[in-house]
């Protein structure tokens, strides 16, 4: 060791600093400063609360999607959906999901407390609302994850980023977030919500049809719910520079449901004009804001697909055919859902 130190001294200390040495030291100093600076606190989604914003969109409303064929997927395969169905006009809000948790708790459909979460080879315990799920068919396929019957986590009450508090008896949505999409909900929780009211999660095909409609422009289906191209004030996505980016930094945060409806919002942070970005059937937030769980269970893998992109997605992931996937136990500040019936 002593020899190493002596040798290093021979290299660095006994020599007059060369321009190369100075350069290296400057680089090292700059890197160190940046790394130190990176430890400084930056606003996190969990730490700041935005003001309440009323967008004027009714989050209890539904839109009818009539039967008929539509261009499905990136390559516009004409696909028939031979039945009418309805989709929620906006994602389920924190207020709606909080109400569900209270009603389901009172009805004995869910419990609150510790629950084992199992995924892959990992098992851990979380605290939150949970309920029974009958499990998925299992084929023992390579990399297939077995979803066994049992109690599943619906909504973690103690995780970073929850917008619904639980005082031991009542769930309450944080007021300012009450009309934001309900996030941190697992697929099990989203399914339980829809089924509690006699509805269901939309299939991927239903979701995409509701997002893009049937119109073909130059032989192609719409790439975004509102049209063929995206502007910054069409949706809440990474680098869209909306008001919430000013509040929360580059990653932004969820926006209230139906925020992008053509209105101008004026806050202390400035004013922001949105474009009316409803889908052809009048659905809002079908691109950006939060990924939305869909209902399909694909055999031999059991990943659940999410659609629409989120406030943390680049615009390419807002194209209507793009999907994300995760195990049904996954929850996140950028994942929400809506129901179909």
């Amino acid at each position: 060791m002593k020899r190493i130190i002596m040798s290093l001294r021979a290299v660095f200390a006994k020599q007059p600093p060369s321009s190369n040495g100075r350069f290296l030291r400057a680089i090292a100093l700059a890197t160190t400063l940046i790394l130190i600076a990176s430890c400084a606190p930056a606003p996190s989604v969990a730490a700041i609360t935005p003001p309440y914003i009323d967008t004027g969109i009714d989050h209890e409303s539904w839109a009818l999607i009539p039967a008929g064929s539509f261009p499905y997927g990136q390559h516009d395969h004409i696909t028939d959906v031979d039945y009418d169905y309805e989709m929620m006009v906006t994602p389920v809000t924190n207020e709606q999901f909080g109400r569900f948790l209270n009603e389901a708790l009172a009805a004995g459909a869910i419990r609150v407390g510790e629950v084992e979460v199992e995924t892959g080879e990992q098992v851990w315990v979380e605290v939150g609302a949970h309920g029974f799920y009958p499990g998925d068919p299992y084929d023992g396929y390579k990399h297939e994850e077995e979803i066994k019957p049992g109690d599943k986590l619906f909504f973690p009450t103690e995780a970073d980023g929850v917008r619904i508090t639980f005082d031991g008896q009542i769930f309450r949505a944080i007021h300012e977030y009450s009309n934001h999409p309900a996030t941190m909900v697992t697929w099990f929780g989203a399914k339980a919500y829809c089924e509690f009211y006699g509805w269901r999660l939309p299939s991927e095909i239903e979701w995409e049809k509701a997002a893009r409609g049937t119109e073909l422009v130059d032989g192609r289906g719409l790439a975004f719910p509102w049209g063929t191209h995206i502007e910054r004030n069409n949706a809440n996505y990474y680098s869209s520079f909306d008001l919430f980016v000013k509040m929360f930094g580059k990653l932004g945060n969820t926006t209230p449901i139906g925020f992008y409806n053509g209105k101008t919002y004026t806050l202390a942070e400035g004013s922001y004009t949105t474009l009316d970005s409803a889908s052809p059937y009048g659905l809002y937030d079908m691109a950006g804001n939060v990924w939305q769980w869909t209902g399909d269970d694909y055999p031999k893998q059991h990943y659940r697909h999410m659609r629409g992109g989120s406030f943390y997605s680049y615009e390419v992931d807002l194209r209507v055919w793009k999907f994300n996937s995760a195990g049904p136990q996954h929850y996140s500040p950028q994942v929400g859902f809506r129901c179909a019936r």
Binding site: I34, L35, A37, S38, C39, A40, P41, A42, P43, S44, V45, A46, A159, D160, G161, F248, G249, K250, L251, Y312, S332, P333, Q334
Partner: peptide
């Protein structure tokens, strides 16, 4: 780092990458 607390890491790793 969790998604809710990742902003610092994202900001600085992106900045260092860009630089």
């Amino acid at each position: 780092v969790t998604e809710a607390e990742q902003q610092n890491v994202v900001n600085w790793t992106m900045l260092l990458t860009d630089i």
